[in-house]
Design a protein around this nucleic acid. Structure first.
Lengths: 146, 146
DNA sequence: GACTCATGATTAGGCACCCTAACATTCGTC
DNA sequence: GACGAATGTTAGGGTGCCTAATCATGAGTC
């Protein structure tokens, strides 16, 4: 809030942020490989790994509409990775829960992905890694704002 | 290279990097609004804004396959934003060139997007902005590595 | 010059993911 | 018990990406 939104420095940062974000999107895409769980599905599984969530909550967390979330969840259900049960406190709602198989695959896939990313990060020097680590919370903050 | 790719610190950083990246994807998506040029198209226009490029170069820069690039480029051509001409030095190749209209719209859309992002960045304090600015080159480096 | 192989782009067909609109069901309230 | 709000699902459509197949040109070989 310390600068007006039209400050040239802000616009310059915006420009390079946009460009970097675009590259990051391709980086992210390149990371879900080889016929395993997609990045999208990983996100959903991560979400319900902590506790069962309603479809609407999943959609909101993913930043997509409810019907789109339903679609994804049904696929995960058909793959046996999650189950759907009516919420005991409100029979309109549906609770999405991770199955044992889902948890196992989620952990495996997460591990493989982390290793893949770690291999990339290993090419950075300590200073760059520190810069990256420091900025991640900031980007998270931005995403939540939007 | 200063750490083995299985170092726990590296894996932890990989984990939070992946999560942040996912959020950033949604952030990026939320930024192309309101029936204007998509983020994808912006990228293509930016690329050919400097100099005409071959379809294969556009595809490579975007991290997508040639047929997918062709598809996008044809849409841009139909919108009158780029033109396609055979490469004089190799008639198999096609050069994608920005039209005057394309350049005008690209600049306009870029400006609007920068303003939108700048408005987000304005919510950060100076320290956060500095952290972000410092990390962008690092992320760019990672994307190029992958 | 004709054959062959490699390269650049396009076309065809298909899949993943997202959307809006319309519908059923349940909840809360009056 | 009836009405409006909330929760999901279904139906239908669009975009963007992919692989495989095809077409056209370039480059090397005989």
């Amino acid at each position: 809030m310390s600068l007006p939104p039209t400050d040239p420095r802000l616009l310059a940062l915006a420009q390079s942020f946009r460009t970097t974000l675009r590259h990051a999107v391709y980086l992210s895409r390149s990371m879900d490989g080889d016929g395993e769980i997609t990045s999208m599905q990983m996100s959903t599984l991560s979400m319900v790994a902590e506790e069962p969530l309603r479809v609407s909550r999943v959609a909101a967390n993913l930043g997509i509409r409810v019907p789109s979330a339903t679609e994804q969840i049904i696929k995960l259900e058909q793959a046996g990775l999650v189950s759907r049960q009516p919420d005991p406190t409100d029979s309109r709602a549906v609770l999405v829960k991770l199955t044992d198989k889902g948890r196992a695959e989620w952990e495996d896939a997460g591990r493989r992905r982390n290793e893949r990313v770690a291999a990339l990060l290993a090419h950075l020097d300590d200073n760059d890694r520190a810069l990256l680590a420091a900025a991640l919370p900031v980007i998270g903050k931005l995403s939540r704002t939007a």
